Computed example of a mutant assay.
Amino acid sequence: MMRMLPCILLLAGCNNMVQQPRYDAYEESSLFPDGKVMQAPPDGAVALDEPLRAAAARRPAAITLALLKRGEERYGIYCAICHGQDGRGNGYVTTRGFPHPPSYLSPRLRAAPASHFYDVITNGYGVMYSYADRVPPADRWAIAAHIRVLQTAQPFRDAEQEARRAR
């Protein structure tokens, strides 16, 4: 019994851990010279995954069946709602009044390099906002590869025919 007494006393003291003094995010503090609790990262700080993301952004992955399947899956999740399953710009949101995105089958986008699609997913374009925080770089390249499949699988039509078909 005497051996357990120190353990019981130690555990009784742990109740205060729930109600420890702490600072809230925007609270003032005397800990730092600027008086703020939240501090900017030091100069030169790099996120742990940043070198990998930068390397993935520089070069596309090799085209494999697995990459194309991944691109089709990711396209269905992130892109088809606006661009449509076939890439013609007739996705579901356009039936609700959202402007039609450009068709991937247009001559301009057929001639665009795969890096253009990667860049648009990363930075956004026109009404489309950036998906950089949602789609990792490898998946951006996979989506770009799937867009190439959509373009290759569908016959070329002129822009006027595409515009009529999208409506």
Rank of each mutant, 00 (worst) to 15 (best):
N15K: 11
A66G: 10
V18I: 07
D43H: 10
P107R: 15
M17S: 14
G76T: 09
V127F: 11
R110A: 01
M128N: 02
P113F: 08
A62C: 06
R70Q: 15
T64H: 04
A80H: 09
R22S: 05
V93C: 05
R88S: 03
L65T: 15
S30G: 12
L52K: 12
P41L: 14
P6E: 00
D158T: 04
F117N: 00
R74C: 07
I77H: 13
Y92D: 03
R110S: 02
A45H: 14
S30T: 13
D119A: 11
G91S: 09
P136M: 10
A142H: 00
L52A: 08
T95D: 05
A55N: 15
T94Q: 00
V127H: 08
A57Y: 13
L67E: 07
V127C: 00
D24V: 03
H116M: 09
I143T: 00
R3C: 06
V135W: 01
Y104T: 04
P6G: 05
A80T: 09
R148T: 02
G87M: 00
I81P: 01
D43T: 06
T95N: 10
A159V: 15
A66C: 02
V93Q: 01
Y104C: 01
D119Q: 11
V18C: 10
Q20Y: 11
G44R: 06
I77D: 07
A47E: 14
A138K: 05
G126V: 12
L10A: 12
L48Y: 13
I63E: 00
I147S: 01
G97T: 04
I81H: 08
R22A: 10
A45K: 11
I63G: 02
V46D: 06
L150W: 04
A40S: 11
T152R: 11
